[in-house]
């Protein structure tokens, strides 16, 4: 496990965090606006999915 791997692990962490915060935040805002409860969960799952897709694009393909 070299230095590059360590940097990659932290940038994966960053992508996941920003995915959850951004799309979860959008879901939370929709919930506040419409008075519902489900957009937050949907947004979190969407954000995690998008972030994992991004991680696959960046680190998973050859």
């Amino acid at each position: 496990m070299g230095v590059k791997d360590e940097g990659a692990a932290w940038s994966i962490f960053g992508y996941l965090l920003s995915g959850l915060i951004f799309w979860g935040g959008v879901g939370w805002a929709l919930d506040q606006w419409l008075g519902t409860k489900y957009f937050l969960l949907g947004g979190l799952i969407l954000g995690a999915g998008a972030a994992i897709y991004l991680v696959w694009l960046r680190f998973g393909r050859e």
Binding site: W10, S11, F13, G14, Y15, L17, S18, G19, I21, F22, W23, L46, G47, A50, A51, Y53, L54, L57, R58
Partner: peptide, 28 residues
């Protein structure tokens, strides 16, 4: 915009890239 992605996926991915580079990186 990272290359080799279908156009529709940019709606999902571009905000994440921007948030990562400009907010999450210095914050973490």
């Amino acid at each position: 915009f990272m290359p080799g992605v279908p156009k529709a996926a940019y709606i999902l991915l571009t905000p994440l890239e921007l948030a990562t580079f400009f907010i999450v990186r210095p914050l973490t």
